[in-house]
């Protein structure tokens, strides 16, 4: 196995994926995209926009019908951990402990090291008190945390979360997100595919897909409100152009901006809203 080249980014250039049927329709592309080491990249889009295909591509999973160039750079040659929506399809053990052991085994971790390392991971994910509960005793959120723990076990340079929180309520979703953020804090690059626009951090990078292509690549605030310094209240924001529903607070921000005709940036997070409305 080739050692990942630490500084090099993951790059796709003019990459397309074609379907396997006779007409070989283009599913996504052509896409050019760079993910830097340790970056947090949000990926959004309506159903069928191709975001899952792109996510799987970024994770390095086998793809039929790919044309174009790509280099995995810092992510290395092995596929990256890929956490999906349904915990049922990605849990192979019967308990969180078994799951993490299974993951570590396939990473080639030596036999003596597996048990202590698994305990550490389970502790970090907050699953220590649940390690030996079977799946039917755990909630959907806790099962998803176990899937994340197994994905985090390898300390991979890149982890892809494909709508990992869309079946969860706000509370469980925050837990999974928190876990992803703490992995990111340790230097792991994260691709975060989501339908929940209200989870996005205003200064984070977001890529929006539409019809198999990249419609927007920039910061979340501009994605929700448009580029405010350039043309206030002109046209629609990229978010709406992609067919995505504005979250409530963003819709409120858009309405207020329209009434006030101002050009300053609009608040995104609840803390920013509190500040703007002097609620602190």
């Amino acid at each position: 196995m080739r050692k990942p080249i630490l500084s090099e980014p993951l790059e796709l250039s003019d990459l397309s994926i074609y379907g396997s049927s006779e007409d070989s329709k283009r599913i996504i592309g052509p896409i050019s995209l760079t993910v830097a080491q340790g970056e947090w990249l949000n990926l959004v889009g309506v159903n069928g926009s191709g975001k899952t295909t792109l996510a799987r591509l970024l994770a390095g999973l086998t793809m039929e019908g790919a044309a174009g160039e790509w280099s995995r750079g810092f992510a290395g040659d092995m596929p990256s951990p890929y956490v999906m929506q349904q915990p049922e399809a990605q849990l192979f053990g019967e308990t969180p402990r078994e799951e993490v052991h299974f993951a570590l085994e396939w990473l080639g971790v030596s036999a003596q090291e597996i048990a202590p390392r698994a305990d550490r991971i389970l502790q970090e994910t907050g699953l220590l008190s649940l390690t030996d509960c079977t799946w039917d005793q755990l909630s959907g959120g806790q099962r998803q945390l176990a899937a994340v723990a197994a994905a985090a076990a390898g300390e991979a340079p890149l982890i892809v979360f494909d709508e990992a929180t869309s079946m969860l309520d706000d509370r469980s979703s925050r837990r999974v997100q928190q876990l992803a953020r703490s992995l990111h804090g340790k230097g792991t690059a994260v691709v975060w595919v989501t339908q929940r626009l209200h989870e996005l951090e205003p200064s984070a990078r977001v890529i929006a897909m539409l019809g198999g292509g990249i419609q927007y690549d920039g910061r979340v605030r501009e994605f929700l409100y448009g580029d405010e310094s350039r043309d206030p209240a002109a046209g629609t924001a990229p978010c709406e152009r992609c067919g995505l529903r504005l979250p409530y607070l963003a819709a409120l921000g858009v309405e207020l901006k329209r009434l006030d005709r101002d050009e300053s940036p609009s608040p995104v997070t609840v803390d920013e809203w509190r500040r703007v409305l002097n609620l602190l």
Binding site: L138, Q142, R175, H184
Partner: peptide, 28 residues
């Protein structure tokens, strides 16, 4: 009233350790 700043400062996400008490203390 609303007082919008010229720009919002970038708040770095505080990576904090997750305590056991936050939702996973016992099986649901």
């Amino acid at each position: 009233p609303m007082t919008k700043p010229k720009a919002f400062e970038v708040v770095e996400y505080q990576s904090r350790s997750i305590s056991e008490s936050e939702g996973t203390q016992a099986p649901d």
